[in-house]
Write a protein that binds this DNA or RNA. Structure first.
Lengths: 343, 343
DNA sequence: CTGTTAGCGCATTCAG
DNA sequence: CTGAATGCGCTAACAG
């Protein structure tokens, strides 16, 4: 591997000049710069990341932290988001570490990632409200931003979407179709998104004069399995709901499977809705009415925010984006016969 | 951040001794070692990764390379595999970079990852037979292993599963159910897995006296969309196949969606099969008969292999594991009325 | 505009 | 068994 020394020799300059050229600093004469550039090219020189990190105190690496492992796979949405983040970061000259949080206790691997200074900052996905990871990051004094996780007096930047707005979009839609007996399936309530969606559901019912029935709320964990169980439980009741609102697509997909298994026809007998608009959402039968997250904006903003934090720019920013309703085939009027719908 | 110096002072030894303790080297008296350990703990000292990498020439980082971006999301299986890899690596003291290959030309981000020596080695997923990434790695002389990608005279280690065996499992199953008119949907033929599965399909037909009909082969790209299109195309023919064998689960799931949309009932009218056994495979309706990859073994072995390569242990190893047939509800006898099945 | 001097934190020689 | 010296490749201050 060629070093700055080698380049310097070949270009007949000191290696300091090489460093300047490499880092695009001014104060290098045009001719010299070109000579150095040529030498760099000829030797196919690349700066050594470790040396640079040691000397400059910057790794140009970002870490990515997920909720406990058993929930990562439960969320296709996070995979889609990771890819976008990597693209954004890559174009800014950064690389991305895949670091998970192990369930239960803290993750030693994650801790090392931070303590050994392998990253300049982190992006944390949907932290629990009282998250060990967040506490760790705050304690270690590492720049970080949260994606899909916020808390009232958050001492960090975050980008999230408006869960209240998203849920109201869904609930307006189904009540508009005449539904009144609406069941709700939560995600992991440790996460703010799950809580907000539940809260909005409750408030919406109240403000629309619909009685809140605890038996119509099922506590899931975002996974296909829990969605399956939710549907089974909710439709086993004597007074079956006419709509089930799931807190994410994956659970809704599990619910659709349960409906097939039980011979319940969707959406004629029951309407179902999801949240996230993952790729699969349009490939279920029926295709899923859901709430689309503005995933490209989220990824872009998350990257902007973390780089700002790393540069030490002062204020924490709290960005909340608007989601969008996507109506597909899993929702239908309460009384399909009455095509004009109830007034 | 505490350094070895700080620890050394506190433990009243030279920092060399600290280094020995940190690296678990012998030749440190028990008492001294304990004193150092205590100081390390008190200062919550962690070795600086950059310094260590610079000095030792090892980053303890591994990179992960995916097929072109448009195909990453098309493969839930890779997500599941990534998580397992991260777990294995983490327990061995390594961290994992998420590095993709951009479509078309080479990925500058990936190139930097390697050229700047941010990783000790790489794991490459399903490289194309003539893969730019593989060529790059070979040229740069970085240790790497392939997962689900092999070539005849491969100058690298790999772990893969036996596609021939997997496909025969599927084909034996469906022919055992009496099917003769069997369509096939390929993955991206740039990848060896896609090719081998296709080849096995052809050979199997021949050896079983079934005529090969080119119109029954659809060229997909692993994605839900292409599976949808495949089903639509194949079932639009005059002589519809009685079984469609998809080269992965995702395409099969797309196919199932198409069947619903066209009002084709599965598996009564058409049987379908997948490959990989991703989590969704058991949540479709009907649930998917498929081939399960031994994903835990693959992840473990991939990690063993790359660490061997990094240690410079000589020979390339080629590991091929056996897949397993998982029969669910998407396959049925050719003539459902005849429940004993054709003899 | 360019070169010199120092040191980032650690590991690898080698002496003692 | 322990310590002192040297350098990994680079950047940041200064000096010329």
């Amino acid at each position: 591997m060629a070093t700055q020394q080698d380049v310097a020799r070949r270009a007949r300059v000191s290696y300091m000049t090489v460093s300047r050229v490499v880092n695009n600093q001014p104060n290098v004469r045009q001719g010299t710069r070109e000579r150095v550039l040529k030498a760099i090219h000829e030797l196919s020189y690349h700066p050594n990341a470790a040396a640079r990190a040691l000397s400059a105190g910057q790794t140009k690496n970002i870490g990515m932290i997920f909720p406990p492992e058993e929930y990562i796979l439960a969320r296709a949405y996070f995979t889609e988001l990771s890819v976008k983040l990597e693209q954004n970061l890559s174009s800014r000259g950064y690389h991305l570490f895949l670091g998970s949080i192990r369930s239960g206790s803290e993750d030693p691997g994650l801790h090392r990632l931070i303590a050994e200074r392998k990253v300049d900052g982190l992006i944390i996905f949907a932290p629990a409200v009282d998250d060990a990871g967040v506490r760790l990051l705050a304690a270690e004094n590492v720049p970080f931003v949260a994606v899909h996780g916020r808390s009232r007096g958050a001492q960090y930047s975050y980008v999230d979407t408006d869960n209240g707005a998203g849920m109201r979009l869904v609930l307006d839609h189904v009540t508009g179709l005449g539904h009144r007996r609406i069941a709700f399936v939560c995600g992991r309530l440790q996460e703010i998104n799950a809580r907000e969606r539940l809260v909005t559901y409750r408030r919406f019912l109240r403000s629309h004069g619909i009685e809140y029935d605890e038996r119509l709320v099922f506590h899931g964990d975002w996974s296909l399995e829990s969605g399956y169980d939710a549907f089974t439980a909710l439709c086993g009741k004597d007074r079956r709901p006419t709509t089930i609102v799931f807190s994410n697509d994956q659970m809704a997909l599990g619910g659709i499977k349960a409906a097939h298994d039980r011979g319940v026809s969707l959406p004629q007998e029951v309407s179902v809705t999801g949240y996230d608009d993952i790729t699969y959402a349009s490939f279920s039968s029926p295709s899923l009415t859901t709430v689309r997250q503005p995933i490209d904006d989220i990824a872009r903003i998350a990257v902007d925010l973390i780089l700002e934090r790393i540069r030490g720019e002062a204020p924490f920013k709290r960005i909340v984006l608007a989601p969008q309703l996507i109506v597909r085939s899993s929702t239908a009027p309460r009384y399909p016969a009455d095509l004009t719908g109830p007034s």
